[in-house]
Write a protein that binds this DNA or RNA. Structure first.
Lengths: 136, 136
DNA sequence: CAGAATCCCATACGATACTG
DNA sequence: CAGTATCGTATGGGATTCTG
């Protein structure tokens, strides 16, 4: 399942613009890097998951966003929806081949963040957040 | 500067939740995967860039978002701001070591998307599109 | 259990104008 | 050139309710 560990970064280094504004690549990047995209995709790495499992794994996600994110990613062909006509309903979501390719390049990123986040977090002023609010 | 070759995905595969809801990792993931985060970070891979260069490279970004994204990423320690007291002003942005580590795991993702985006298409109808991207 | 539908607010984001 | 300030809108996204 190794897709391409060979960087192919030449295309990027050589170009002036990274992703042209109205390109599919921009769209896909937005889908993947949407608030919940990465979490859902990575959550599926272990194998098929049910709706409720995904909700637990992507901690904090609302049902609305789960549904929306799943549809978008399904539309992009990254995951597959498998509904069984039983009662109570059982639906499994799983990565497609394309989805597995994507996740395989996503994992190093997620792993890196998981390892280094604790050093970053602080960053002194307002914790890096642009608008630090909260606090009831 | 080798950082990424060892996946360390065990931590992810073993865990039930991916990123706990109120964890630094979530915050960092949000910063990086913000609408413009990836674009800016990758744009800096080639070396220091000036404000106006970044604006061109991250095609479509507004000044407001450029400023905001730069501040957030600077706050996270991914990039450095270098202002020279000359007239007209000249400011260079460049990746820190930490930023370079991050981008090094980001590049495979970006490259993958650049390669496959056109097959994905999505969005059903019109779906036209596209003059290949990244072509010199 | 797995979702669709509705309501509604916060903020992300863009456009424009102004400044050192 | 490299920003900041202000404003207005669109959209993301949570809470709640309803259904097969």
């Amino acid at each position: 399942m190794k897709v391409s560990t060979e960087p192919d970064q030449s295309a990027l280094q050589g170009a002036d613009g990274i992703f042209p504004a109205n390109c599919p690549s921009r769209t896909v990047l937005d889908h993947v890097s949407s608030k919940w995209g990465v979490l859902i995709l990575v959550a599926l790495w272990n194998g098929p998951q049910r709706w409720s499992e995904l909700r637990r794994r992507a901690e904090g996600i609302s049902e609305k966003m789960l549904a929306q994110t799943l549809k978008t990613l399904e539309g992009d062909g990254f995951l597959r929806r498998d509904a069984q006509p039983v009662i109570p309903p059982r639906v499994d979501y799983s990565l497609t081949d394309r989805g597995r390719e994507l996740v395989s390049v996503l994992l190093p990123l997620v792993a890196w963040i998981a390892e280094h986040a604790s050093e970053i977090v602080d960053a002194g002023p307002s914790a890096g957040a642009v608008t630090a609010i909260v606090e009831p």
